[in-house]
């Protein structure tokens, strides 16, 4: 299988070993993610497999607890606002960078990507100290501000990637046919790069919704997000309600990932 006809027996053996090894690594990648799902449906409050009896009690716990519900709503609001700001700013910047006359492209690109690179604790502590000067700690505005900075690199990367396959002559054609700059953008450019923009938006949403460390530093009880609630829970005493929350987050990730995969497949066609 998958080998040229001139392969020696030892080469075939080697190939089989490599494939088996890769399968084991794949298992290592995937299995830990799904271990939490059966545990969240277990009736017992401890974490052993196989599950003896299934129940929805931890989900009832999760949805019946106002603290968890509030945390979910807070996360949702912060993520939606972050998505709107990051997508707008990131798409605009990508449009500029994709132009051939963009000055100091390498430097600007390095700056725009750096929120992905700088250790998250440095961003969190810096924001905590700096935003504190303006009363932005323990506010939703401060959290959205910091999350937007963290999310923009994803939008810049995805939109720049889409723009590299976009034919700028289309914009020129629209302009020569009398469309204004804005109208050409909304009616010609945007529909063409939409998959990239939406991918970026999905990434931005996921970045904010999953982010723990900055939220840990910048929020008080009222703005507490779902990941912060989970983190504090695990630190205290890990309980199966956290498994239910983790399973919900996993389901959301799979949903977003599926949306993205369908989107990029369409683009490839």
């Amino acid at each position: 299988m998958w080998l040229p006809s001139y392969a020696t027996p030892s080469e075939r053996m080697m190939r089989i070993l490599v494939v088996v090894f890769a399968i084991l690594v794949m298992l290592f990648l995937i299995a830990p993610l799904f271990i939490i799902v059966p545990l969240s449906f277990s009736k017992d409050p401890f974490f052993t497999l196989p599950v003896r009896e299934y129940s929805l009690r931890w989900y009832a716990d999760l949805f019946g607890n106002p603290r968890w519900m509030e945390a979910m709503v807070n996360s949702g609001i912060a993520a939606v606002l972050t998505t709107i700001f990051a997508t707008t700013l990131g798409t605009l910047a990508a449009l500029g960078i994709a132009r051939p006359d963009f000055p100091a492209r390498r430097f600007v690109m390095a700056l725009l990507i750096s929120p992905m690179i700088v250790p998250i604790v440095i961003v969190a502590v810096g924001s905590y100290l700096f935003f504190g000067q303006f009363g932005l700690t323990n506010t939703r505005a401060g959290l959205v501000f910091a999350h937007t900075a963290l999310a923009t690199p994803f939008v810049v990367i995805t939109v720049t990637a889409t723009l590299s396959t976009y034919d700028t002559n289309l914009t020129r054609a629209a302009n020569s046919l009398g469309a204004s700059g804005l109208s050409a953008f909304f009616r010609v450019t945007l529909p063409n790069i939409l998959p990239g923009v939406i991918s970026g938006a999905i990434f931005a949403f996921a970045t904010s919704f999953d982010e723990v460390v900055v939220a840990l530093f910048l929020t008080a009880a009222e703005q507490r997000t779902l990941p912060v609630q989970m983190f504090s829970g695990i630190r205290d005493q890990i309980n199966p309600t956290i498994m239910a929350a983790a399973t919900m987050l996993l389901a959301l990730s799979i949903l977003l990932f599926a949306a993205l995969t369908i989107l990029t497949r369409k683009k490839a066609r």
Binding site: I30, F47, D210
Partner: peptide
Amino acid sequence: MVLLPLWTSLLVRTTAWVVLLQ
């Protein structure tokens, strides 16, 4: 299978390991 873990929240993956390693 390579991309899905990348998409899953870091906290969820860490939680999974906390449970696995207990």
